[in-house]
Computed example of a mutant assay.
Amino acid sequence: MQISRPALIALALAAVAGGGWLLSSKSDQSTPPKAESRPMPVVTRAVEAKPMPVRVSAVGNVQPLSVVPVRPRAEGEVIKVHIQEGQEVLAGDILFTLDARPAEAARRQAEANLARDRAQLDRAKADLARYAKLLETGSATRQKVEQATADVAVLEAAIKSDQAAIDNARLTIDYSAIKALVPGRTGVVNAKLGSLAKPSDSQSMVTITQLRPIRVSFAVAESVLPRIRSAMAQGELPVKVTSAADPGLAATGALTFIDSAIDTQTGTIGLKATFANDDTRLWPGQFVNVSLTLGTEEAALVVPAESVQTGQIGTYVYVVTPESIAEIRPVTVDRVLDGLAVIAKGVGAGDKVVIEGQMRLGNGVKVVERTAGAPQ
């Protein structure tokens, strides 16, 4: 049988396709070559043992030692305002002057009453002496003597009342000059010239806020309290405050107050530090970063903070063994200061920890050390 030319071409194409399929099947069944494993490049740093301060950090709020709302002690018209809003005043400075003329008139009246009653007392004493002599001779009755004695007692009581009225009038006159009880900065002046000031007014005439010295209130975890109390027993504890809003702020004060009870809802204890605040950089209501120094740990184990990782097992670091193998080492971080983590447990001085390249590591991975910043 004779095969046509088109049929021969079709058979040839089929044979070529079949051969390619066989080659492909053999290739799929072969095992791919094993990729060659290579060490992971990392940057390491040795664990150091060096002196490190023991610090407690917190967020604090600036509070004045005293905020005094000024109110009058006696009623009167404001006849002079001696201050301006936002002015610095000293204790004893006159803030307002009230009209003291009614009090002065009351004082003069009380002094006149005192002079009158003293004169009447002198006459009553003379009458009492005269009646006492007449009683001895029988020319006066005992009733007359008793009446004269009562008159003397009444006038003596009147004199004491007159003196009290004079003292009260003088006190009212003193109250007409309203003075600052504490040094500080004045707020809004609510008492205007010509207004009537009364002790019962709900609004104060002005409020004085003491700025020097000033306090910063903050809270720390209750677990730190024993260390704070132990450090305070050794002497004054320095406290430093800074502020992101005021980069130039770096005030140093001292811890002066520990609250009498722990807040059971938050598990914290309230503390206060006092600052001289001579430059008034600390302002009431301001939020600041607080750093309380409890002392110095002479041989603290420190590593760069970036070497500490957090995972399902907690905090850990990668330690490079002498055989250049990465090993996961769980650690306990006591505190972090200025980019350095102080390790309480988990590593020893001289151990090499990985500070760059942790993302590609696992336990038992071969590593090779490189210089920081060098190309990988």
Rank of each mutant, 00 (worst) to 15 (best):
R118W: 07
R227I: 00
E327A: 13
G194V: 03
A244F: 03
A169Y: 07
A165Q: 13
A197T: 02
G86F: 07
V354D: 05
A103S: 12
A276W: 02
T172C: 00
V16Q: 11
T315L: 07
I178P: 01
G248V: 01
T280D: 12
A7R: 15
L337F: 14
S37V: 10
G267Y: 06
D122S: 04
A17E: 07
A12L: 15
V368T: 13
L135P: 01
T264M: 10
K26I: 06
R212G: 00
R5H: 08
N168H: 09
G267D: 05
S57Q: 14
R55E: 11
E236D: 08
M359D: 07
A17L: 14
P69C: 02
L155K: 13
L282K: 06
A10H: 09
I328G: 04
P39S: 02
L196D: 04
S307C: 04
K160E: 14
V67D: 10
A91E: 13
Q2T: 10
D117Y: 14
D162R: 04
L171H: 10
P238F: 12
A273D: 07
T141M: 04
A140C: 03
T266F: 05
V54N: 09
S195H: 04
T97P: 03
L128N: 03
Q234Y: 05
D246R: 14
V42C: 05
R215G: 00
V70L: 10
T209V: 12
S291H: 08
W21N: 00
A157R: 08
E369Q: 12
E369C: 02
A100N: 09
Q210Y: 08
S66P: 00
K352L: 14
T280Q: 11
G348Y: 14
A374R: 07
Q120R: 14
L196P: 00
P6Y: 06
A10Y: 12
G364P: 06
V239G: 05
S230F: 05
Q147K: 15
